[in-house]
């Protein structure tokens, strides 16, 4: 019911904005929805699963002291296998949720002429920062990308119109677009997670579907301890303890996006 009323108000808002031609459609739709809700006699409740992991604001710490190329491969495979990320031959159509890059690309504003040798060719895993102040969410014209109460920045693939405004807005290049049907490029389909269709944007979701059933993100599981996941707002959490004891940096902090991913260097 609450949803119906909200939808109705949104419709009303549109109508007020002078798009009168829509008012007809609006009347029909909201009547239908209300009527169907009226027929419902059953008690319906939506809730979280009993073992779901919850947090005030999810965050990640990447321990670059542990990272190796092999670990990066394992994490990437785990993520892309879990989420049915296609592997297109054409680089223009490439889709990636997590990948590794050199320090100078991960932190282009922090490049140094005399960089610590270890960082010269160290693979740095990069993925969506799940910013507290996400420019992509601000840009999206349909709220297809949105921020959940626990800080996750997610995609609603059902709603995305494929305008790619979010990709222009993301200062980290974390988003990919389905330039073609992804299905033919998925080798081993994971039946428990949907694929995408052509024409929508996708990105790392911090494994929202795994958190819901009490599991940590797939990359964290595959990381041999290089990735640590937890609640940034909980002073007792493991990641907060790590951040208290170690110097950590974030990507492009100067832009004010407030990323939730920290890199211990």
């Amino acid at each position: 019911m609450e949803n119906n009323r909200r939808n109705f108000l949104k419709f009303a808002g549109v109508t007020v904005l002078g798009l009168g031609s829509l008012s007809l459609l609006d009347g029909l739709t909201s009547d239908d929805v209300i009527a169907s809700a009226g027929q419902t006699s059953a008690e319906e409740i939506y809730k979280k699963g009993a073992n779901a992991l919850t947090a005030k604001r999810w965050g990640m710490v990447v321990d670059t002291r542990i990272i190796t190329a092999a670990i990066c491969r394992k994490m990437e495979n785990a993520c892309h296998q879990t989420h049915n990320v296609p592997d297109h031959a054409n680089k223009r159509h490439e889709i990636k949720w997590i990948w590794d890059t050199e320090y100078k690309h991960a932190f282009p504003e922090k490049t140094d002429l005399f960089l610590a040798e270890r960082f010269e060719h160290l693979p740095i895993p990069v993925f969506c920062n799940h910013c507290a102040n996400p420019p992509c969410v601000q840009a999206c014209p349909t709220q297809a990308t949105f921020q959940r109460a626990d800080g996750l920045v997610l995609m609603d693939f059902h709603r995305c119109i494929g305008c790619r405004f979010c990709m222009a807005a993301c200062p980290y290049g974390s988003r990919s677009f389905n330039f073609r049907d992804p299905r033919e490029a998925i080798k081993n389909e994971n039946p428990e997670f949907p694929t995408r269709m052509k024409g929508v944007v996708e990105k790392c979701n911090f494994c929202a579907e795994r958190l819901a059933v009490g599991k940590e993100p797939a990359c964290v599981e595959a990381s041999d301890g290089a990735l640590i996941f937890g609640d940034l707002e909980d002073p007792q959490s493991e990641i907060r303890k790590l951040l208290k004891e170690n110097y950590a940096i974030r990507r492009k902090q100067n832009l004010g996006t407030n990323p939730s991913v920290y890199y211990i260097v």
Binding site: R92, K96, A168, G173, S176, F177, N178, R180, K198, G199
Partner: peptide, 12 residues
């Protein structure tokens, strides 16, 4: 899909 264009992950 839009893959027939020259656009890519970087130039969207």
């Amino acid at each position: 899909g839009l893959g027939i264009t020259g656009m890519s992950r970087d130039v969207t």
